[in-house]
Simulated scan of single mutants.
Amino acid sequence: GRRVAEVSGGEAMLIAITGLSIRRTAITLLDEPTNNLDRPTRAKLADFVDQWPGTLVVVSHDLELLEHMENTTELYGGTLDTFGGPYSAWKEHQEQEQAAAVQAARSAQQALKVEKRQRVEAETKLARRERTAKKTQRDGGIPKILAGNRASKAQASAGSLRSTLDNKVQAAQVAVDAADARVRGEEHITLVLPDPDVPRGRRLAELHDQDRTFVIQGPERVALVGANGTGKSTLIEQFIRGTAPAPDRPHGRLLTELVGYLPQRLDGLDDDASAMANVQSVAPGTPAGTIRNQLARLLLRGDSADRPVRTLSGGERFRVSLARLLLSEPPAQLLVLDEPTNNLDIASVEQLAEALDAYRGALLVVSHDFALLERIGVDTVIELGRDGRMHQRRDLNI
């Protein structure tokens, strides 16, 4: 009976998917359907997918869900390419194609070098012949008429040879360009998080329920997990904002002011302002060139950095929010991330994991993406139950 605005992100997704399954349309589109879903619900959604009536088109970075697809279609460089099979099979096929493309590009480049070298060698020989002919003519070794005829023939022959060799070089260059076009340039988000130099014994935050207190200290990595609707995001919002907790509900307290926060719903951005302006608002002393370079490292270049944030994709908005954290001074001792992989593509998730793995401050991550949590080396797993109590787990197998 609650309003949709009052339910959790995962519950809202379940409501939407349930409505779509009841409609039973011929074609159904699901855009990132596992965002915010807990592990059991993700498994149920996978069963839904396997039995879905009609055609189902899924946009997702959830590798487990993608294994339930019959075909994989990639949008790259403005072109759609469809492969018969799930993501893992497509990925293997793509890696093989790229390996072959790289080898073909190397071979084409080598062939071009050979043609250019032969062109230079031929020009050297022609110049040597021309010098010999001029010397013979100058020394009077042969009649002038015969020397002239020979010179004319030599020039014609040299011109023909040059034309042939130039054509071969041009053809080799075309082959190189075609081979290079098949090799994909890897666009990498380069995330280098600042070193906050957090002492191991420094207490940064506390999480409380009716029975227990959990302390986050030093460069500790804590995962907060639990079923949809248990109040994980509400707990995070409460202690980040410093508002009074609800009765008999878990609550938290920050012990440091140096906190970076990425909410599940990126509502801290000014949608009408550009990415540049959004970052400048939290880093007024940072030169514009530094901000622009940082955004470029996050693949927000040129027009993307100057467009209103409301025109950016979910992944681009996330990068703007991340840039606001990266340029904070002094750097955050504690990063609090609520479902950080929502709306990120597969490559960006991996690059985010690399950055967080190298971060030397404390992390509190709310996520159902257990692959990410394992990748960043979580030290402590806290499960929030529906009864409002928190339980420490040894690992992510819950």
Rank of each mutant, 00 (worst) to 15 (best):
S304D: 15
R301Y: 03
L299I: 04
L335D: 01
S304T: 01
D306P: 00
R319F: 06
A332M: 11
D338P: 08
L322H: 02
A323D: 04
E339P: 08
Q294W: 01
R317Y: 09
L337I: 11
Q294V: 14
F318Q: 14
L312E: 04
G302E: 13
P340V: 01
E316N: 12
S313D: 11
R317D: 01
R301I: 09
E329L: 07
V309D: 05
L327A: 06
R317L: 10
A323Q: 03
A332N: 07
T311E: 15
R319W: 06
S304I: 02
R310Y: 12
E329F: 00
A332Q: 10
T341Q: 11
A296I: 04
P340C: 11
E316H: 10
F318K: 10
L327K: 10
R301P: 00
L299R: 12
V336A: 03
S321P: 04
P331T: 02
R324F: 06
L337A: 05
V320L: 13
A332D: 04
R319K: 15
F318P: 01
E339C: 08
A323T: 12
R324P: 07
R324W: 10
Q294L: 15
L325F: 10
R307P: 00
R307Y: 00
A323N: 05
L300D: 04
G302R: 08
R319V: 05
L300A: 03
L327D: 04
P340Q: 13
G314W: 11
R301E: 15
L298F: 08
D303A: 09
F318D: 00
V309P: 11
E329A: 13
L298P: 03
D303K: 14
P340Y: 06
L299M: 13
L335K: 06
L312S: 05
T311F: 15
L335E: 01
Q294R: 14
G315P: 13
T341N: 12
P340K: 09
G314M: 14
A296T: 12
S328A: 15
P308T: 01
A332H: 10
L337W: 02
V320D: 10
S313T: 08
D303H: 12
L299V: 08
L322P: 08
E329W: 06
L322C: 11
P330M: 13
L299W: 02
V336R: 12
R319P: 04
S321Q: 13
R310V: 02
P308A: 05
L326W: 13
R319E: 02
L298I: 01
V309E: 03
E316V: 04
S328P: 01
L326C: 14
R307N: 07
Q294A: 13
L299D: 07
F318A: 13
E339H: 10
R307T: 09
E339F: 08
S321W: 00
E329H: 12
D338H: 09
E339K: 06
T311H: 14
L327E: 02
R317M: 14
S313Y: 11
L334Q: 12
R297P: 00
L337D: 03
G302N: 09
L299K: 03
L334C: 13
N342V: 14
L322T: 04
S321A: 15
Q294K: 14
L334G: 10
L312V: 08
P340D: 08
